[in-house]
Computed example of a mutant assay.
Amino acid sequence: MTSLTPSGAFRGIWPAMLTPLNENLGINHQLFAAHATALIRAGCGGVTAFGTTGEGPSFSMAERREALEALIKNGVPASQIMVSTSCAALPETLELTRHAVQLGVHGCLMLPPFFLKGVSDQGVIDCYRYVIDGVADARLKLYLYHIPQVSGVSLSHPVIATLKKMYPETILGIKDSACNTAHSVGLAEAFMKDLTVYVGFEPDLPELGRRGSTGAISGLANFMPRLVNRLVTQPDAPDTPAERERTMALIRLLDDYSLMPALKGIMAVLSGDKGWLRVRPPLVALTPDQFSALEKLVRTFGIDPARD
């Protein structure tokens, strides 16, 4: 499977990896690499580190640098790694982006500025310019990350159009995790000619696949990579409506839980390793009773590692 489009943007599923932690809540580098390797062996085009699902902003710049280096040292090809370099402090975003490019990763995922709110379009553009101009490396491939319900800052159409015009060889795609079908379709209609639009909300993958999307950065792909891949690459297959409903059913199953601890809970169920339950504050790990209840739901749901 070719992992890149002709424009250089990624193709296929690059799971938004959960980040496993040790007892001291530091990153478990060996398990992180093993998880990435297993996902690539399952057919994923690559993996994505330190996005929202991976608790990225909860880790320091030093931790994220060390973890990326460890992934590569432990056998994960740099060219099959996407890394979110987003930090509240812009110089740290620049440093992490420069570091990732120097290591040879496929690309970087970058949020708009997410601490101050009410930021103007020009302010958002200036932040991206600060990083792109600061890296000053033709190898940089950047994906714009839209998740306003988390960041509190949107990427408007004028911002996207301006950045693409200024950096046509650098800006390759948009990850839209707003979980709003109409918004995702609007992005596809406006930009799919020049950029690849990817959605993070799995039930929207068939709709975007019909409009030219070629992959996804997905949280559910941590344990259902094959199913997620089929949703976007085979949007009109006979089984797609049922498989889309299956993802919706799983999402509904998690409604009563905080999402990242619950996703880690599913990993703990499927792997038999309760170490996956650990999260970095401010997230709170599932209690034993919550995990027990979730485990029953997951086993009843029936995730099939060989097909899902």
Rank of each mutant, 00 (worst) to 15 (best):
L31I: 10
P238C: 07
M166F: 02
V124F: 05
Y198E: 00
D308P: 00
D194P: 00
A221H: 08
A16G: 14
L71S: 06
E207P: 01
S218W: 02
S177W: 04
Q80H: 09
R244N: 07
H183M: 09
I174P: 12
R65L: 11
G107W: 05
E95D: 04
P6E: 15
A237D: 09
L227M: 12
E63L: 09
G12P: 07
L227D: 07
P241Y: 10
T196Y: 12
S271N: 04
L297H: 09
S120F: 04
T300S: 12
D126A: 13
Y198Q: 02
D273I: 08
S60M: 00
T162S: 15
L71A: 12
H183K: 13
L68W: 01
V269T: 14
P112L: 05
M17K: 03
L187M: 11
L254Y: 08
G51M: 09
M260G: 00
I40D: 11
A62D: 14
S258F: 04
V159R: 06
M61L: 10
P261S: 05
G152T: 06
G56S: 13
P261R: 00
S86M: 02
I125F: 04
V232W: 02
G152K: 11
F223A: 07
L39R: 11
P168W: 03
A36G: 13
L68P: 01
M260C: 07
V185F: 09
T287N: 05
F223P: 01
A293S: 13
G51C: 10
C127Q: 15
D273Q: 07
L31K: 15
F10S: 03
H29Y: 14
A136L: 09
E69C: 01
L270S: 08
A89D: 08
P112K: 01
G118K: 05
A78Q: 13
P15V: 09
T19P: 03
F50W: 12
F115G: 02
M61I: 14
G265K: 02
M1D: 11
R65C: 14
A216N: 05
V228H: 06
P91W: 11
S7N: 13
P57K: 02
A221K: 03
C87T: 11
K274Q: 15
L227H: 06
G275P: 09
S184L: 11
G104N: 10
P235L: 09
P235I: 14
P282A: 12
T300W: 00
R129N: 14
V135Y: 02
P203E: 00
M17D: 05
M166E: 13
A285Q: 11
S213V: 08
P235V: 12
E245N: 03
A34I: 06
Y145D: 13
P206C: 09
R11L: 07
I171S: 07
P305S: 09
S154M: 13
S156W: 08
A9H: 09
S60W: 05
A182E: 15
G43F: 04
F223C: 02
L187G: 12
K264S: 06
P15G: 07
I266M: 00
R41H: 15
C87G: 03
T240M: 05
A237V: 06
T181C: 10
S184C: 15
L172V: 04
V232M: 05
A262L: 06
